[in-house]
């Protein structure tokens, strides 16, 4: 399958750089005027440094990944062309794959070690969107994210482009300056409100709203949570970092895994440290998201009995 001329050498991310930059300045200006948003200079520097490092990492690894993708494409089941409907289908299916990949990134520590970088800021602004990992190829998730669609018959270049548009869409939702979008849009699409929930460490918000572009995946697979007026998101991770050092941000969870495996008493424990949800420990001294939520619900249940108040965290609409 020949790649059409109009997309040869086309990199949507490069074209989006002015949009990224201008948006960050605009958000800072809005924050300066005291309307909404929150910035901290060292935090923003760390996020942006992570973004630059991610670009460098992409330059280093893209060649290897493309060799893999074209190898898979050689063994495709069917051949899909570059018709408009194939583009639309590729965009939707890529987002579906993204949902599952993202869900695994939160529920399997091996993948979390990479993705934690993006969640490691206690701020939620457009620079947080650019806080991206440096070591993603080592998780080997490229072996299946993308590859499944390629072996189905979608061209690797097409997937690289729809993947870039998926990423560009996700940039603007990393902000506190936009409250809610029109109701129809909130129902269908991922929005700043939905994604604030995703970045929240409030027990009610843990491991919710994995969507990239279409929020419908979360509604379909039971992971949707509406942002509540009485539950302002607290951003970051369960064990927030006490440093802005980009090297530590990029590697801390990998070192934590190595340390845990080194101390593991059995092979099973070592495997669980790698593959169980973040927070798992053999003696239960740490807590997973599910355990934190369960403890929180238990406590709020007693509040209801005493005060007759409505149960916070009741199922989302």
């Amino acid at each position: 399958m020949n790649v059409p001329e109009f997309i040869q050498g086309f990199d949507p991310i490069v074209w989006a750089i002015p949009y990224f930059t201008i948006s960050v300045f605009m958000e800072m200006w809005i924050t300066k005027r005291g309307q909404r948003g929150r910035f901290e200079t060292r935090d923003s520097f760390a996020s942006l440094a992570m973004g630059v490092g991610n670009n460098v990492s992409s330059l280093v690894f893209t060649g290897i990944l493309m060799v893999w993708y074209f190898f898979v494409y050689e063994h495709r089941l069917v051949t899909l062309d570059f018709s408009w409907w194939v583009w639309v289908l590729a965009f939707i299916l890529y987002d579906f794959m993204y949902y599952w990949s993202h869900r695994l990134a939160h529920t399997v520590r091996w993948f979390w070690a990479d993705h934690v970088v993006h969640h490691s800021s206690q701020h939620y602004n457009l620079t947080t969107a650019l806080r991206q990992p440096w070591l993603s190829p080592f998780t080997l998730k490229f072996m299946w994210l993308g590859s499944i669609l390629i072996i189905t018959g979608f061209h690797p270049v097409m997937l690289a482009i729809v993947g870039s548009f998926n990423l560009i869409y996700q940039f603007w939702i990393h902000t506190e300056t936009i409250d809610k979008c029109p109701a129809w849009f909130e129902k269908l699409m991922n929005t700043p409100s939905h994604h604030r929930v995703h970045h929240g460490t409030n027990p009610l918000y843990l491991d919710r709203n994995y969507a990239g572009v279409f929020i419908v995946w979360d509604k379909m697979f039971g992971t949707f949570q509406l942002e509540r007026d009485d539950e302002k998101p607290r951003y970051g991770i369960i064990k927030n970092l006490g440093t802005h050092n980009p090297l530590i941000i990029a590697t801390h969870e990998w070192f934590a895994i190595i340390d845990d495996i080194r101390k593991a008493k059995t092979l099973r424990d070592a495997a669980m440290y790698l593959l169980a949800p973040p927070g798992w420990s053999p003696d239960g001294t740490r807590m997973t998201s599910k355990q934190i939520l369960s403890r929180w619900r238990e406590r709020n249940k007693s509040t209801i009995n005493e005060e007759g108040a409505e149960l916070p965290g009741s199922p989302a609409e």
Binding site: F25, M28, T31, E40, T41, A49, G51, V52, N55
Partner: peptide, 27 residues
């Protein structure tokens, strides 16, 4: 081309960080 992209990135990051600093957004 890579070197130019990298330089532009570093310039952009510096401009954003300096703006953040001079706007006194950190509390």
């Amino acid at each position: 081309e890579i070197a130019i992209k990298l330089l532009i990135s570093i310039f952009g990051v510096s401009a954003m960080v300096l703006t953040c600093h001079f706007f006194k957004l950190s509390r």
